[in-house]
Structure formats: C-alpha cells, structure tokens
Write a protein that binds this DNA or RNA. Sequence first.
DNA 1: CGCATTTGATTTCATCCTGAAACAAAAGAA
DNA 2: TTCTTTTGTTTCAGGATGAAATCAAATGCG
Lengths: 390, 390
Amino acid sequence: MESSDARLANRAAVLNELLSRDTATRVTIAVRTGLSKATVSRVTDDLIQEGLVRENGPLPGSGPGRQALALSIAGEDKYVCGVDLGGSNTRFLVTDVAGRVRAWAREATPRTATTAETARWLTDRVTALVGSGELHVTAIGLPGAVHPITQSVRTVPNLPQVAGTAFTETVAAALPGTTIFDNDANVALLGEVTAGAARGRGTAVMISIGTGLGASVYLDGRLLTGRTGAVGEFGVLPYADGTLESVMSGAGMVDRARRLGFEVRDAVQIFDRGEPQAVLRDATAALLSMVTTLKVAYEPEVVVLGGGVAPRLAARLDALSWLLDDPTPEPPEIALSTLGDPAGAIGALVAALHCHYRAFDIHTPDLGGVATTLLRSLPGEESHVPAPSA
Amino acid sequence: MESSDARLANRAAVLNELLSRDTATRVTIAVRTGLSKATVSRVTDDLIQEGLVRENGPLPGSGPGRQALALSIAGEDKYVCGVDLGGSNTRFLVTDVAGRVRAWAREATPRTATTAETARWLTDRVTALVGSGELHVTAIGLPGAVHPITQSVRTVPNLPQVAGTAFTETVAAALPGTTIFDNDANVALLGEVTAGAARGRGTAVMISIGTGLGASVYLDGRLLTGRTGAVGEFGVLPYADGTLESVMSGAGMVDRARRLGFEVRDAVQIFDRGEPQAVLRDATAALLSMVTTLKVAYEPEVVVLGGGVAPRLAARLDALSWLLDDPTPEPPEIALSTLGDPAGAIGALVAALHCHYRAFDIHTPDLGGVATTLLRSLPGEESHVPAPSA
DNA sequence: CGCATTTGATTTCATCCTGAAACAAAAGAA
DNA sequence: TTCTTTTGTTTCAGGATGAAATCAAATGCG
C-alpha cells in the first residue's frame, strides 16, 4: 500500500483530532485542522473503510440546519495493553484503541520465579484482562535498559530473570499482536509528558527513585533512548566514594543506614524518621548534583521526580530552597510526578497506542486528551476485570 | 511564495545532489535521487530561474549520444562567511554559496578592546575578505553560550566584551545579509560532523579543551543547544573540590600548576614537561569522568577531543587504556579532532551555508562533500585575500 | 402547512504535482 | 548519409487538494 505524503499527513491530522476530542464531526475537524471540508470528507470515508473510524448516530443539533453525524474512533473490541513490570509490583492497564479503559490490575511481581515462569505469569495476566477482546499491541516497561533494536534487556538488579532476550522473546511469542518493551523510567516519563506533570512540554527529564535509580529524557518531542537503550543510567556515575545509585536510590539508602547501625525497612521510613541524618543529607546533595548534571546535559523545561521516595525528597528540596540561588537564567521547573505509581502503566499504554497507529502510518504526537479521559476512568481500586461478555 | 511539500523535498534533493558532486547532469541527478527525468528537468529549470543553479557548457561525452549539459551551483559572487572568534585567535573563512573558497585569515583577537571596537574589528575584517562579493550569510562561533532565540551571549570569561546583546547586534547591523551566532564548541562539532572525525555520524559529542572547557552535542542529526544555549557547559559541574573546568581546562591546569609552585606558560607545556604530575593525573581523571557522563547522557557514537590540549591528553588516555575495561556493550569511539584549529571556522561556514539555503526552504542535511572540497583549498597559510577584481 | 434559512456533507471542477512514455535533439559510428 | 545511443522535453494519465456549487436535512417563521 503506497500513498502520497500529503495524504498520510491528512489522515494523521483527522485521526488525531478524533483522538483528542471525544465528539467530532466532519466540519469541526475541517475547521480545527485547517483542511477543506472536501478533504476531510474523503479522508474520513477512507478511515471508515479501513475500520479505524466509525460514524455514530446524528448529533442533536443546537440550532437550525442539518444534523451533524458524530464520528468516533472505531474498535471497541480492539485492545491495547500497557504493563509496568516493577521489581515489587506490576500494573496492567487495558484499553481499546481509543483509550477507553477496559480493565486494570495491580499485583505483586513474582520475584523468585524463573524467566519462563515470570513470562508465563505476565502473559496469563494480560490474557485474562483482555478477555474476549482482540489484543493488538502490548507495551511493557521493565526495570532495565532495553536495546531499541534487539530488544535485549541489560542491567536488571531488581528483576534479573528478565535480562537478555529470553524473557522478551517468550512474552512476545505468547501474546497476540505486537509486543514492545522499554525501560520503566522511560515509559513513566512518557506518561508524565502525555498526561502528568510534564504535560505538553517539549523537553522534560524524569528522575525515578525507587529501589534503583533511573533517569529518562524526553527531548524535542521524543524519548531519548540512545543506541543501546542505556541513556539515562546516571546511577552508575561515580559520586563521593560510591555511585549516585549507592547514595540516593532506595536500596542504597537502606544499605547505608544499616551500615550505620540503624534498623530500617525501606527508604521511606528513613525519611519519616529523619534518621540517619548523614544518609538523608548525602541523598539530597546527590540529587542536587544529579539535577545540575541533567540541566547542563539537556536544559529540560521541567524535571519530574518520581518513584516511591520522591515525595519525601521533594519536601527536603524545598527546604533547601536550592532553586533560588540557581545561576541559570531559565532554570527548569521541579515537579513531583502527578501520576504517581501508575505513571509507568499509563506511559506504556501510550506507547502501545503510538505503536498501534504507527502501523497505519499515522503519527500520534499528542495523546494527551486520550490519556486524560483515561485517567478519569481509573479509580483507586486495585484491579478491575470486566464481566465476561456474551 | 507557497509551494507544495513534495515540491520542496524535490528541490532540496536536486540541490543537495549538486552540492555534493562537483559535476552533475539532469540524468545523473535523476538516477541518484530516484526522481524521474521529467521532475528533475522541471525542478532544475525552476532553480535556474531562481538563480540558484547554473547551466554550464556541454560536458564532453565519453561515448555516443547527445552531450549532457553540466549543471552547477550558481552564485560565484554570492558569499557566505564563517568566523571562529576565539579567546586568543580568530579565524575567518569566506566561500561562495557552493563552498568554493574565496578568502581566509587567521588573526590575533584584540583581547583588551571594547565591545564596539571588537565588533568593528570583526566586521572590518569580514568586509575586507569579502571584497567585491555579495555577502549573504555570516555565521560566528564565539566562546560563550548563545541564546538561540534572543542571540544573547552568556558566560564568556575568555572574551567578556561579547557578552549580552550589544556585540551581536552591532555586528549584525554592520554586516550585510544575515548574521547568526553560536557557541564555538558547537560550530566546531558541526565541522567535525560534516567533514572531520565524526563525519557521517548521527550522534556525536565533542569535548573542546582550550583556555576554557566546552562540550557540544550532535544528536540524531541535529546540534543540541537547549532552550538558552547552555547545553554542554559541563565545565561548571562540580568535580573534586572545584569544577571540571578548574581541573581540566587549559587555564585551570595552569592555575593549579602555579599554585604548586611551577612556572608554566600554558597547558601544553605542562603536558610536554610531564609536570606537575598531580595536575596531569587529575585532568586525566576528570576527562574520564566527563566522558562517562557524556556516555550516559547521550550514548554518542563517537567522542571527539578538540582544542589545543586535546592531542596531548589523548596520548595519556591511550596509556590508561581505559577503553578496554569499559563495561558498556557498545562504547563510543574516542577520536581526535581531525580538522584541528580550523574546525570552528569550517563549522561556522557550514552553519552559514545551512542558513543560506534554509532561506530558500532547502534543507541541506549533508554538506560533507562541500566541506571536503573546501578542505583541499585550505593550505596551511595564515591568510589569503583575493586580489581586488575589476 | 409551506417555504426560506441555515448548517452539514458530497460532488464537481480547476489546479498542481508526479512518473511513464513518447518525442525531439544531438553526437558518434558504420 | 543513416543508424544508434544518450540527453532532455513534452504529453498524458493518475492522485490529491481546495473552492464552490450542489444536495440533504433540520429549524423557524408567516
């Protein structure tokens, strides 16, 4: 199938318009995209033919004149899935291709399982959540560097069974449709850029402080992964007599506290107690150093702090008021993740949607509208599996 | 003037073909670009109408058949200029819009002059070198961060008189055509990417170690400047008890050596003597640290070392064989600048050419051919001013 | 109730651009 | 001179767009 360049751009424009508003007609699309009514009509007809768009009933008109036909994204039974496979918990999110939520879940990750068992567990959960729907794309964020070409996974201290290509290949083989993998920090940032703290920003950086330490970079409208997917592994950089990760990651802080003779369960506890002070002070200083490096490296508009420890760290940052003596003319905003823990699953879902439409040569730069309506359908419950349909 | 998208792309394809080969005909262009003969003919006629392309005499044919008409970039009298305004020396390079060298010069920068005097000095030199030609674009690299929108210059310890907007505005007002400014490390990297050590690479990073310390980033085919032009100022990052710049820049090394009681003229002398060892050791370690940071931040295909000290440092790097124990799966190549000191002027000239053609909506992603032929016309002489033409 | 008005969607038509193919031009070879 | 070969132009069909005319359907007013 070969089509002209302009045609593809117009298809994308029409479809993006449909994705961002929940109700649209041919005329409103023409006005918003700047295309002529004729072109919109033709493109729309094509999209309907291809099954990407559906003509709903007539829209009740407000004034005189013919009733407009409501258009919407078709494919209530075509599903995409976003997964955030974490070191301790895993979140699943299933929507149709318009981003309408179908099911979600949050479960403990089987930490001691083998590669095959973990893969089986994950695909079983996805299959169960998808139910009778037709799964088109699954995007999985996981705590390791994912090679963008080979999909091989590296450096996974938290979840060693997914390293290499065995896990990704097994999962991809067991799931219908396309399966893509990416670093969990990357998909979390994609979530924040699409619908969270970095919404609408052209360039943003996210520091994810969980068990480990990760950074991810969104530059001029694209996630920066690097040739091997290792971009953002700032945790390995030397700091003091260790690495940044050893000082400011959750595991690193707990480790240091224990060596000082403190009994601690997790990093959050350290913050809540305010002890050991040395660990807290060093972690804050390390974060400061990391933000400085990120600033020089990318000049982001905003630095998003994410992960379980982030809210506590942010409070300390404010106390230091380090932003005030920043000599940079236009310093980045510092923001907390607004999506919180589900950011990864939401970002993975956004990646899955991008992937789905890319297969139709449709570039979907802004899924902000989709993601926002999606957010409203996600209450705090742990999981939701739809009743089996007839 | 409004034109279709495909038309612009084809214009660009034809013109890029002409820029990269010194001799071309309509048929060879059609073959190389994949366009049809008809389209090439039409586009070429347009370009000739606009004065961008010229039809030269018939090309002596090798076999039977009609003689082909040679085409070439028009505009022998339309000039562009690249300037590398350094802390101690300034290089000028003037070519026509096809990159054919017209004049060049290297002079000591007037360090104690005022802003107005420096601007006057620079514009006088450019005007003299341009002579009777028609200057279209001047690109100037200077040792400071240049705000990409306001063109305001920041952080210029080496050349304080160009800070702010006074210098850039004065120069732009005094020179005909368009004048653009950028950081000197950025234009040097543009030179290396176009015709030097990073030729043809999609992503590359350059560390420029001169009096000061600068890094520049070329990512996926574009120079990364950041919102305010401050991307790459890794020199300000803290290192040991100072900053990276204080440890591994030329000025910083000299300063540290003198504090240790050594009498040194410049950093090169420190390397040649091999003393003070502490200064050398720290500088090497700092470079190592910087390369590690750059690797994590961008995963470049190649790291280019430039600036006067670079060759000496590179020798030490080899001795450390630090590349061998690099745990990264695909570590970047480390390369010395192959353009050397003129890299900045060449890169500035490339930027000027890009700018010139961009005004015609023609994107020139690869000026490698132009820059290479340009290199051959640049012998080691200090300057060359053309004889005044009638 | 009939008809003008208004708004939505489609169709028609002029325009622009491309590529394939036919055609014209020019040079060398037999 | 005539044929062959290569270059460059012209012609024509095929897509695609936008403006405008046209068709379609709903409201409101006399």
